[in-house]
Amino acid sequence: MPRYGMVIDLDRCTGCRACMAACKVENNTPEGSFWMYVFRFEEGEYPNTRIWFMPRPCMHCDNAPCAKVCPVGARYKREDGIVATDWDRCIGCRYCEVACPYSVNYFNWRDPEENQYVNWKDPELEALSGGVIPPYKNPDLDRPCGPEKRHIAGASHVEGVIEKCTFCVHRVEAGKTTACAANCPEHAIIFGDLDDPASEPSQKLQRKSSFRLLEEAGTHPRVQYVGGTPHGHGWRQIQPAGKRS
C-alpha cells in the first residue's frame, strides 16, 4: 500500500500559479474554489525586501481534523493516505471547513453548473459540446474510486456540498501523478510514495531539510516543504487571487 505524500520545493517555485490553473481544469472546480492556492508574500522594508511564494494544496493530514468531525462519514482518510470527500454522502454541514486549520475546504453555495465562470448554456456551443457544463468537463471525475467504490473525484457535482483537493485521486489510480505536479514548469511540486526510498519525494527529502505548515497544530500533514528561507516578521500577502474586489 503506497503512502502518498507531496514535497514542494520553495527554492524552485516561481509563483506562476500554473498549478492553480491545471488543478482547476483537471478537476472542474467552480469559481472561487482554489484547491491549490499559491501565496505570494512580501516582507521587509525597502530596500531590504524579500519576495517568496508558497503553493498550498490540501495537506492530507495523518491526523486529519476534518475526517474526525464529519458527522456522516463523507470525509474519510484512505489507506493510501488520501483524505477524500464522498460527494454523494456529504450533507453540507461544513464541520470539516471549521475544523481544518489550513482553510482548504470550499463549499458549493451555488449550483456548480451556474458557477463555472461563463454562461455555457449557449445553443451554438451546446451543438458542439453536447451540452456538457463546462464544455471541457473531465469525464474521469464521475467514476467511483478505490476499493471502497465511492464518488470522491473532482468538483462541481452537487450544490450544497463541500469539496477540496483530492490529490487527483482519479489520476493517481490510473498511474499518473497529480495535475499540479505534472504541470509545474519548474518541477517544484513532487508527488509520490513516501514509503519508497527511490521515489522522487523521498529523494528530495533526503537531500534537503524540510518543514511542514502549522506543525504546532498536530495535524501531521503529508505535504512537506523544502528549500526557501525562514521568513522574518512583517510578511504579508500580495496579489491575492479570487473575486474582483
Binding site: 464529519c70 458527522p71 462519514g73
Partner: peptide, 20 residues
C-alpha cells in the same frame, strides 16, 4: 501520534453525528 489512517477516521463512521 498517527501511525495509520485509523487515527483520522472515527472508529464508528457516524460518531460525530452521535456527538451532535
Amino acid at each position: 501520534i498517527p501511525t495509520g489512517v485509523e487515527y483520522s477516521n472515527p472508529r464508528l463512521p457516524f460518531a460525530p453525528a452521535i456527538f451532535i
